[in-house]
Amino acid sequence: MIKIIIAIGVLLVLAIILAIFRVHKLVDVFRGTEKKYVTASNKVNAALFLVFLIVGGIAFFWYSIAEYDRYQIPIASKHGVVTDNLFWVTMWITGAAFLLCNILLFGFSFFYQHKKERSAYFYPDNGKLELLWSVIPAIVLAILVFTGWKAWSDVTSKAPDDAEVIEVMGYQFAWKTRYPGKSNKLGAHDYQLIDAGNPFGIDLKDKNSFDDFSPLEMHLPKGKPVLFKIRARDVLHSVFAPHFRLKMDAVPGMPTRFWFIPEKSTEDMRQETGNPDFDYEIACTEICGRGHFSMRLKVVVDEPEEYEKWKAAQQTWLAQNPEYLEKVPAELREMAKIAAGIQEDEQ
């Protein structure tokens, strides 16, 4: 019943609007406005452009200043400081151009609105002006390109040799991490070896794999370079750690990498943001299917000593999954047990 009443109401409103429109048209015909080349609306439209410029400009400045802390998320990596600086330099330069151009656009629209007594200025060309406003943007852009290129080369340069290597693997719909353990070398992997218990496809013929461990949350040492070795198991994913200003696609069949230096521990960040529950996070930014929006990985940045302690306390993957010892070649099995920290009596 209510639906019918709403439907009738909507129809009535539409009928009224239509009636107003018809009356309005008839009035226009009567007044002869329709035949005029320029009507009174011209002034209204010109004025509205000015209103839009002023109201829009105020809203832009007000929101950008008042809500700065909400959209400018804190930086927690060394290169993040550089890229964020560059971001704000670009913002100031292009922001000025943005304001100037829009002011001119709407200002000209208002000031040069049609007036009967005036005629437009015949001004088809000016080579010098064209040259000027080709060269100036070119120079400004060249500066931005150069600074950007420098930052980009630094970010994508080879990781230092002492970087902590951590493997990050994306799959539908979560992340898994693998640390190289005491050997400091990640064991080989092969996607053909993946099964329910061995999500990485760790190749147990490789000695380096025995002490690898795979924790549920990622820990990083503060102030030390960290190298992410990134891969994907099924479709494209993308590692995105917003606070570290870090993003790199995870590609099946093509390992990628990204190195950086975390500058603030989780504890530091909790104090800085005043949020006792703050946690670093990794998200996925390459569309990967139904659960794309839920690929969260918690990241904890520890002080270096705590980090070493945490590392030492981790059980190796092999110790967690001793049934995979069978896959280790017989001659390496004893070595694997020692490297993996498997006690004889556990068997």
Binding site: Y37, V38, S41, N42, N45, A46, C101, L104, L105, F108, S109, Y112, Q113, H114, K115, R118, S119, A120, Y121, Y123, L129, E130, W133, S134, P137, A138, L141, A142, L144, V145, G148, W149, W152
Partner: peptide, 30 residues
């Protein structure tokens, strides 16, 4: 590609400036 991309901003900027100059001292009918 960063270099080439920022070059393409130049002709785009020229177009904008030319539109602005076309409006300048016009007799605009909205």
């Amino acid at each position: 590609f960063m270099f080439l991309t920022l070059i393409i901003a130049v002709p785009s900027a020229v177009k904008v400036f030319n539109y602005l100059t076309t409006l300048w001292r016009g007799n605009i009918v909205f």
